[in-house]
């Protein structure tokens, strides 16, 4: 099984007529994802390589029965696009947009929680989600993932997500689902959401968790793992050598004072019984070892 999406998930692409939306939307369709429509205001009635385009999410949902949306629009319009998706009846929203103001993210997140409690947002500023062989929403290259499980991956970073997939696939270890939660300060989906879903998924036997400096999501995840997780977790935290006070690329990746250091996160995870590794390769090897011993 997979988490959040599967081979039956019907997806629309908001911003499908833009460069990125078109490129990734078509790539996702080529992978086998059921991309059933697109939305661009003012371009309703046209199509993108055979994919029908609608003016609004509501129209797209009514015509196609889509339940998921891939939001690929510029930062200025992203918050409104996410809320339009929720209002239009979409229940799983993936937003890859990078550069959304933090205050917009905070308002959008809380409006979703308060007004659309059944809706899950993944991202923003994330690579998306892939359930190998079933569904790929976002920018991950499908060819580095291997279907069949048994590993679930959750990660805050894009390229490190690819690295993690690569390390496992190369050794013939497949994945159930790989979720990139994104590197922004207010992620719609966090580590715990994914860990809980993997814990509940019978086909996922072990989880790889890739974190990075900044915030305290890894520490909270460690607490959750200690209390609830029965499956083995292997972790790698990026940014051991990052200096304090500098944003390391991601808006959320910053050590302020003594908060958010990689060391504190690794200590918390180790204390929760997680196998903490020094680099992505070591984490991959550890996971291969665990899976082969099962």
């Amino acid at each position: 099984m997979s988490i959040f999406v599967d081979e039956n998930t019907k997806v629309i692409v908001q911003g499908i007529t833009g460069g990125q939306g078109r490129f990734h939307g078509l790539r996702n369709r080529d992978y086998g994802t059921k991309i059933v429509g697109g939305v661009t205001p003012g371009k309703g009635g046209t199509d993108v390589d055979g994919i029908p385009v609608f003016n609004t999410v509501k129209e797209a949902v009514a015509a196609t029965g889509a339940t998921a949306s891939f939001v690929s629009v510029p930062p200025k319009f992203a918050a409104a696009a996410i809320l339009e998706a929720a209002e239009g009846g979409i229940t799983f929203i993936v937003c890859i947009t990078e550069g959304i103001p933090a205050h917009d993210e905070a308002v959008t997140y809380n409006r979703l929680v308060e007004e659309y409690p059944g809706v899950r947002l993944l991202g923003p500023n994330c690579p998306g989600i892939i359930s190998p062989g079933k569904c790929n929403i976002g920018i991950t290259s499908g060819d580095i993932a291997l279907p069949g499980g048994p590993v679930g991956i959750v990660s805050r970073s894009g390229t490190l997500t690819y690295q993690a997939l690569h390390e496992l696939s190369q050794q013939g270890i497949g994945q159930t689902t790989c979720v990139g939660i994104g590197g922004d300060p207010v992620p719609g989906t966090n580590f715990i959401d994914c860990l809980a879903a993997f814990e509940a998924d019978p086909e996922t036997k072990a989880v790889m968790m890739i974190g990075e400096i900044g915030g305290s999501e890894e520490e909270r995840a460690a607490e959750w793992i200690k209390a609830n997780m029965t499956k083995p977790v292997v972790s790698y935290i990026a940014g051991v050598t990052a200096p304090a006070g500098k944003k390391m690329g991601h808006a959320g990746a910053i050590i302020s004072g003594s908060k958010g250091t990689a060391q504190a996160k690794m200590d918390a995870l180790r204390e929760a019984g997680v196998f903490v590794c020094a680099n992505p390769t070591e984490a991959g090897q550890k996971m291969v070892e665990i899976v082969r011993a099962m």
Partner: peptide, 17 residues
Amino acid sequence: IANGAGLAMSTLDVVNQ
């Protein structure tokens, strides 16, 4: 030089290791 913030951070770490 790396592509992606996470991989760039990780590269710093590995060089250090």
